[in-house]
Amino acid sequence: MNSQVKVPKGDEKITIELTVKEAIALTGVRFNGEPQLKRAATKKLMEQLDQTALH
């Protein structure tokens, strides 16, 4: 089965400001002393995607 996903503004570029640690956390590396890093980075990413998709 072949399905395609259509994303409005899918080729538009977005800019998200992350710390180096946040960017690394998004790759799957765990920072035991700072478990909130991935959550914070994901939140920033999702907020930017929401803003882009709505406008």
Rank of each mutant, 00 (worst) to 15 (best):
M1E: 00
N2Q: 08
N2C: 02
N2F: 09
N2R: 08
S3R: 09
Q4E: 10
Q4C: 10
Q4S: 11
Q4L: 14
Q4A: 11
V5N: 11
V5F: 01
V5K: 14
K6I: 15
K6S: 09
K6P: 05
V7K: 08
V7G: 03
P8Q: 12
P8G: 09
K9V: 03
K9I: 01
K9H: 05
K9S: 04
K9Q: 07
K9P: 00
G10D: 08
D11M: 10
D11E: 14
D11H: 10
D11F: 11
K13L: 12
K13V: 12
I14E: 02
I14W: 00
T15I: 02
T15E: 04
E17L: 05
E17Y: 07
E17P: 01
E17R: 09
E17F: 05
L18F: 03
L18R: 00
T19I: 01
T19F: 10
T19W: 06
V20K: 00
K21S: 04
K21H: 03
K21I: 00
K21W: 02
E22R: 10
A23D: 05
I24P: 00
I24A: 10
L26W: 06
L26S: 00
L26E: 01
T27F: 02
T27A: 09
T27N: 07
G28K: 05
V29K: 07
V29C: 01
R30N: 08
R30W: 04
R30V: 13
R30A: 07
R30Y: 13
R30H: 13
F31S: 02
F31I: 09
N32Q: 14
N32A: 15
N32F: 15
N32W: 15
G33L: 15
G33R: 14
G33V: 14
G33D: 15
E34I: 12
E34T: 13
E34P: 03
E34M: 14
P35C: 07
P35S: 10
P35M: 08
Q36N: 12
Q36L: 14
L37R: 07
K38N: 04
K38V: 12
K38L: 13
R39N: 12
R39E: 14
R39W: 13
R39M: 14
R39P: 05
R39L: 15
A40S: 08
A40H: 12
A40R: 15
A40M: 15
A40D: 11
A41Y: 05
A41G: 06
